[in-house]
């Protein structure tokens, strides 16, 4: 499904990832934890194809394809979804129109028929009900004037609508209250299945109480220094990262 081998990446000439290796099988949820500056967000941006992140060594294969050779939109229609830590605001772009444009781009790539405005609204409203989002969030410009929690809800709505096969959650839990945190977890859990994998990047263990990962990895200084099962997250919460970093 996703195979990251010896990944090295620089940002503004600074080496951030220094030989990261990780494999995610279909249906698996992996969590990556680590201190600030360990390269967590860089990893998610490299995987999603953001400009300014240069891969200097290593490879990433996704469903047998060279992920790094693909444009961001090609990765998205191939099933990669990045839930942003700080989603942008787009004044002048209506949320409904944006979402339908994205949904149809993904559907076209899959060879599915496009949805018209009425079909779209039906699909979106059903998802929004589950996410406890008011209907008027569709009419507003994308994320403009949304609270932090509303922006994350909107990210989850996009994820649910686009039904990716690989979700990258980049500290989606940062700044969320417990209700919003549960909403994020519920959305991920609702997508869980044999064709859905996720990489949950987080600083804290609390999100992992709600999304129970199959594997937990500790990222430090651009490399994975420890891997384990869900119990590793609890251990880290108790002992902090310092012990793992010192032991590595």
């Amino acid at each position: 499904m996703l195979k990251i081998e010896n990944l090295h990446a620089t940002v503004d000439g600074k080496q951030i990832l220094k030989g990261l290796t990780l494999e995610i099988a279909p249906g698996e949820i992996h969590a990556i934890m680590g201190p600030n500056g360990s390269g967590k967000s860089t990893l998610s941006y490299v995987l999603a194809g953001r400009e300014g992140y240069e891969v200097t060594e290593g490879s990433v294969t996704y469903k047998g394809q060279d992920l790094l050779a693909m444009e961001p939109e090609e990765r998205a229609v191939a099933g990669v979804f990045l839930a942003f830590q700080a989603p942008v605001e787009l004044p002048g772009v209506g949320n409904a129109n944006f979402l339908r444009t994205a949904l149809n781009a993904v559907r076209r790539a899959k060879g599915e028929s496009e949805v018209d405005a009425i079909q779209f609204l039906k699909l979106a409203r059903a998802r929004m009900k589950v996410l406890n989002m008011p209907d008027d969030m569709l009419k507003r410009p994308v994320n403009v004037g949304f609270s932090g929690g509303e922006k994350k809800r909107n990210e989850m709505l996009q994820m649910a609508m686009l039904s990716p096969t690989l979700a990258l959650l980049d500290e989606t839990d940062s700044g969320l209250d417990i209700d919003a945190l549960k909403m994020v977890a519920d959305t991920v859990n609702s997508l869980r299945g044999p064709t859905f994998s996720a990489l949950v990047i987080t600083h804290y263990q609390r999100l992992l109480n709600h999304i129970v990962p199959d594997h937990v990895h500790v990222l430090s200084a651009g490399r994975i220094i420890r891997s384990g099962g869900p119990e590793l997250a609890q251990e880290l919460e108790a002992t902090g990262y310092a012990a793992s970093v010192a032991a590595a």
């Binding site: 229609v77 942008v88 004044p91 444009t101 686009l162």
Partner: peptide, 27 residues
Amino acid sequence: ADNLFFLRSRGIPLEQAKAILVEAFLT
């Protein structure tokens, strides 16, 4: 650039993403 990346990361092709942002600018 961040806005463009956001739209592309949702599967919207580059030229269409640009068109969306230009239309938003004109709104």
